[in-house]
Each structure stands twice: as structure tokens, then as C-alpha cells.
Amino acid sequence: MVSRALGRGGLMAILVAYTAFAGFPFLWVGTMSLRTTTEIAYNHYGWPSPAHWAKFRAAWIDSAFNTYFTNSATVVIGSVAVITLVGAAAAHCLARYRFRGNRLVYFILFSSIILPPQIVLIAVYQTLVEYNLYDTLWGLGLVYVSLQLPLTIYLLEGFFARIPQDLFDAAKVDGYGDFEIFFRLVLPVGMPAIATTVILNFILLWNEFLFAVVLISDDELRTLPVGIQRFMGDHFQDIGMIATGVMISVLPVIVVYAFFSEKLIQGMTAGAVK
């Protein structure tokens, strides 16, 4: 009995300790985002009182975080929309139609998920320079589409293939053509899976750094991850303002997480769960 209670107590201690470990860094940045650098230098672990909410305004306008935010939102929303439509069409085609080479196309797309990004990085840079797409959001968006398309097709194909064939037969009897079937049957029925890939792609691209740092050099076009990194390079000592910038960049993700935590977790782990 005693050992059982001890075991229970130990387990609870582990739970509390790990929760602190996982959550502390983020909460700490949260407090620092509301304190001035002078206050932070005096005590790094103090509570923000008074809370300097004006710092968010300062970071947003004076430190150009509004530009970075808009750029990130534009390129991520644009590419996620394209990925979803193009990916769903391809996934439907691979899941539903029989044709020679179907599995070969699937295998090639699927294998490219494991490619290290360096193998395309240098040539993508060269190609975008040649087509005047280097240092444009269009070029970055195009690259983002190619980065996430294989995984999206892979996930959606798995789901679309499980839609019962009866539904398709019924739709054909009703006189649906190939494209009506796709838009009026596959997309609505596949919505849960599509939502999952949208979430996954949104988060991964919102956080993307390597291609953003290589393909964008104009400060006006930087996305949030690169913007913060450069800001930190220029204002290494200004911890308070960096923390505010960090909070601005994670805020959309955290807000979505607060409301749709289950869907988000499901989306992020979609590639790993059988």
C-alpha cells in the first residue's frame, strides 16, 4: 500500500516536472515580451508588472514585424491553397483511376518525401535567379508548394482510397462527370483529411527557414522566421524586443491551438500514425 502511494507520488512528481520543463521556456518568453530590456536585465525571471503592452505596437510598426507577418501570411496561405487543390486532384486520380504507371507515379512521389532539401537547394536557387523569381514571394511560394506536395498527396491518397466505391457508382448513375465527382463528392467527403493536411502544411510552412533565408534577400520581403533571425542579429542585446517579436510570430499558431488543439495534434502527427 505504501509503495503504491509512493509510486503514485513519484508519478505525479514526474508529470509536474515534465510539464514545467515543456512549458516553462515558452511562458518565460511570454513574460519577457511584456517587459522592457532594462527590467529584464535587472531580473530575468520577474513577473511583468506593469505589463508593457505597447511593446507589441512598437515591434509591429517600428521594427517591421507587420511586414514580415504579412509576407508570411501571403506566401503560406497562397501555397497551402495551391498545395491542397493540386494535391487533392492528384491524390484522387491515384486513388480512384486504374491506369498503367499509377503505382509507379505514386512510388516516385512518395519516395521524394525522404529527400534531403540540399539536393534541390542550390539548383532551385540557380533556376529562380534565371527566371527572375529569386527574391520574390512568387518564387518562394512555388518552392513551398513543391516542398509539401508529396506528403500531401501521400496522406490524401490513403484517405481517398478508403472512400467506398458505392458512392462513386451512385454518383455516376446520377450522371456526374469526372470533375463533378471530384468537386461535389471527393472534396466534401474528404474534408476531414483535407483539413488535416491544411493544418500540417500551414504550420510547417509558417515555420520554414532554410529556403526563406536562401531565396529572399530583400528586407521588405522577408518572412517571419528570417525577419526574427535578422532582427536578433542586429539587436542582439535587446532581449525584450526580440521576445515580443517571437510572440508575434507564434501567436497565430497558439490562437489556433487554443481552439482546435485536437485537430492540430492530429494534423501534425498525420504522417506518423498508421
Partner: peptide, 22 residues
């Protein structure tokens, strides 16, 4: 029409850059 766009993206942004890097 269904598969073309995806193959185009794959060819232009994955397969071609891969070959070009090598």
C-alpha cells in the same frame, strides 16, 4: 488534368533541380 499540375510541380521543382545539382 487531375495529375498534370502535380507532375509539373514535381518535375520542375524536384526532379529537375535534383538532376541539375548532380
Amino acid at each position: 488534368l487531375f495529375l498534370g499540375p502535380a507532375l509539373l510541380v514535381f518535375g520542375a521543382m524536384i526532379a529537375y533541380p535534383m538532376a541539375r545539382t548532380i
